[in-house]
Design a protein around this nucleic acid. Sequence first.
DNA 1: GTAGTTGATGCACACGTGTGCAAATCCCGG
DNA 2: CCGGGATTTGCACACGTGTGCATCAACTAC
Lengths: 338, 338
Amino acid sequence: MAVTIKDIAEIAQVSHTTVSRALRGHSAISRDTAVRIQQIADELGYVPNSAARGLKSSSSRILGVIVQRIEDPSLGEVIDGIEEVLQAEEYSLFLAASHHDPEREKKIIRNMCEHRVDGVIICASQIDLAQMQQLQQLGVPAVLVNNQAKETATPSVCHDDEYGSYELTRHLLASGHTVIGYLGNAMAGKANEDRLGGYRRALIEVGLPFREELVFVGPNGLAVGGALAVEQCLRLAQRPSALVCFNDMMAIGALQVLQKNGLHVPQDCSIVGFGNISFSAYVTPPLTTFHQPKREIGREAALLALRLLRAGANESKPATKLLRGELIVRASTASPAG
Amino acid sequence: MAVTIKDIAEIAQVSHTTVSRALRGHSAISRDTAVRIQQIADELGYVPNSAARGLKSSSSRILGVIVQRIEDPSLGEVIDGIEEVLQAEEYSLFLAASHHDPEREKKIIRNMCEHRVDGVIICASQIDLAQMQQLQQLGVPAVLVNNQAKETATPSVCHDDEYGSYELTRHLLASGHTVIGYLGNAMAGKANEDRLGGYRRALIEVGLPFREELVFVGPNGLAVGGALAVEQCLRLAQRPSALVCFNDMMAIGALQVLQKNGLHVPQDCSIVGFGNISFSAYVTPPLTTFHQPKREIGREAALLALRLLRAGANESKPATKLLRGELIVRASTASPAG
DNA sequence: GTAGTTGATGCACACGTGTGCAAATCCCGG
DNA sequence: CCGGGATTTGCACACGTGTGCATCAACTAC
């Protein structure tokens, strides 16, 4: 059994109340007793029980984080950013993965409610307004990160994917490309739409047509998804001279297939990714991509969540926070050969 | 305020005791009342408070996981494996990153003790026997994963790095290489020694000398570490025809430097990594490496931790569990040119 | 000396849930 | 009608911590 304040009280010949106050630095305790009690606590190796404390204060100092896959290369840094803020603020982090299973997600949320987390951060899920209201009804402040539902539920932290994709496409256009394809991700929701939208806007802005037949959709956002999508593209008679990919992993998969088919990147086909995951710099050729400030997104989400739970329900809830990254030009893009 | 069993009791016109028993499926409660109470609980949206429950049962159903960096590409899968087991067993996961800071690690452990985690899994840290005893004194069952201290503290789950490195080196020897270098990681402890040891054993086994001047040490296990280590190697008059790298990231960094210097891999220099992180298959050329069963390591660690905390202190504690991966031959290795 | 003030401490209860034991109710056989 | 067992329920306390209020001693001012 662990040491409790009662054990300390008995040794110090005071009531457990005095011990509680002494250890929490209550002003009404004399300096002498406070020091004496602290000393005894240290000697016994006293560790306060947050379960009991949380029971009284009805605050657990725990934040829940829900992701789809923990090993997602674009998520590690986000979680790290969250964790950084929480550790500084003496909060703890509950982590769970839903693996794209809504049933599992419900179980996770339920479990987090049982542990009375003070707030929840949900990453890259498809939370709609109804679910958000449900969460608020449970009394759990929730922050969405890069939420994938069509309607933007708040509060949330998002990366401006539309702008990023627009910039990437403009970069290709500036290099002289006129036939540019898009490799989409069927599993993503809003992110895919936004990135497709930015691509489209850039095209139309310079007077080029948006052609449906140049949009290829992969089954997921992994390398294999990019490979499958680019294979459709290769069957085309008139191939695009550049490809905008949903993310870096798809770009890497596409890159591999292109090279297997004897095409040179960027000479025969330029290619851009999205996200600037650490590996995008290490493929051959290194990938031109759009840097998503992942750690900062995590930090912002954590700060927003903390602000939210501290404000309670009185303050006006902040809306969506939109962060912008920047274009990273590497060697996977060049002017078209012709 | 959340719904409690007392609220339910009032509505159902019974004592809170009956509600508690009914919801937990106690046999002494009549089927009628049980159903009725369950119904009321559902209607009110009752969610049990695990803090209160844990206070009585003195078990939190939480496991703590401590890592160095969350975004470590070789760690994501391990954590995923842990989380998979915990979710199935209805346990929750506390995650914290120590960032190679012993002070921070202590704070984390302290925090986890405050939350009365039922056990701790510590990944890739340098926990020695003394620290392990300290943990046991705190009453927290701890499992070490790929622990980096010289003395192997138990219980732990480890990958057989010595064997892996031995196999990789044998693969190079079998291809005809006779001058093979090793790129080490100064930040790693036991892992670096084991991998160096396996490399050395393979050399000596076939009668080749172990030459200190062919061991190059990078400052960390990242791509930049591999780059810096291989630069030392390039200054050599007689360069090795193959390189065994501490891990995949270092191999990728080394690969890049070699190619920048006009050397072709594998024609001019074969290179092998370690770990089989997902990206090792996507660099050019794809990396020959040793597959570490990361998800399984995570699962084993979680299962071991659960077994441990269920056994209490009565059962004999299991010792180190050693897992072996397998050699993955890709295109970064070939016979030497000469 | 007395009333008022300040400082230090303890009592009793609260948080939400679980449990040993007693009590109440019911059923059944004699 | 009574006794005894089985079934169902409630009382009271426990877990470890925090807090309003009362208590008590010491000190100050008149």
